[in-house]
Each structure stands twice: as structure tokens, then as C-alpha cells.
């Protein structure tokens, strides 16, 4: 355990923040520019995981476990979300034969 903490602390915090920002941005951009529902979904996961990474990093640096507890919550939530989200996407695919979100334009009044 001790070595693991040391190893993590071996990398400066700034690098973690930078990496997470990059991953998060990739996620955001992925959500914005991709039309495939599954890819958007993966991009959302990317964002979640970038935040998870950051939480862990801070947790280690500050010696406070709360951050890691929080990560578990997020992971549980992400799992649930994946289950529901993928189910929805499957249903959409069955109905429209496509997972292109531009096909889904009926969400209006």
C-alpha cells in the first residue's frame, strides 16, 4: 500500500490535472461532435472516468479516503447508467435500425 501511494505521488499533481482535463475534453468533444449514440455514450463514460481519476489522485495526495468512496459511488452509478442507457439504445436500434442521434428528432412540441 505504502509503495502504491508513493508511486502515485511520484507523478506531480499537475500532470494528473492536465491528463484529466484532456480526457474530459475528449469526452465533451466526443459528445458534441459524434452522432453515433454508442460513441456518445462512451464519451460520457470517458468524462466520468476522468473525474474519477482526478478524485483518486486528490484523495491520495491529501490522504483523505472520502474521494475514493465517492469514486465508488460514481462507478456504481455509471454501471446503472450503462445498463439503462444501453437498454434504451438497443430499443432505439430495434425500432429505427440506427443508432444515429440525428434520427431522433421527435423530442419536441
Amino acid at each position: 500500500m505504502e509503495t502504491l501511494t508513493k508511486t502515485i505521488q511520484g507523478v506531480p499533481l499537475n500532470h494528473y490535472i492536465l491528463l484529466c482535463s484532456i480526457i474530459f475534453s475528449i469526452g465533451v468533444i466526443g459528445v458534441l461532435i459524434r452522432r453515433n449514440a454508442i460513441v456518445i455514450f462512451m464519451s460520457v463514460e470517458l468524462m466520468l472516468n476522468s473525474v474519477n481519476l482526478l478524485l483518486t489522485a486528490f484523495s491520495v495526495y491529501r490522504g483523505d479516503a472520502t474521494g475514493q468512496v465517492f469514486v465508488f459511488f460514481v462507478m456504481a452509478l455509471a454501471a446503472a447508467e450503462v445498463a439503462v442507457g444501453l437498454a434504451i439504445i438497443v430499443m432505439i436500434y430495434r425500432n429505427t435500425n440506427s443508432v444515429d442521434i440525428n434520427v431522433l428528432n421527435r423530442l419536441k412540441w
Binding site: L32, R35, L104, N105, L107, K108, W109
Partner: peptide, 17 residues
């Protein structure tokens, strides 16, 4: 105002961001 709701999911996401 209703026209703002285009129904395009991509647009919604964009507006959200």
C-alpha cells in the same frame, strides 16, 4: 419559443454544454 426545441438531440447536448 417552441421552435427552440428542434428535437435534435445533438443540438440539445450542445445547448446543455
Amino acid at each position: 419559443l417552441r421552435l427552440l426545441q428542434t428535437g435534435n438531440v445533438g443540438f440539445y447536448i450542445f445547448m446543455m454544454v
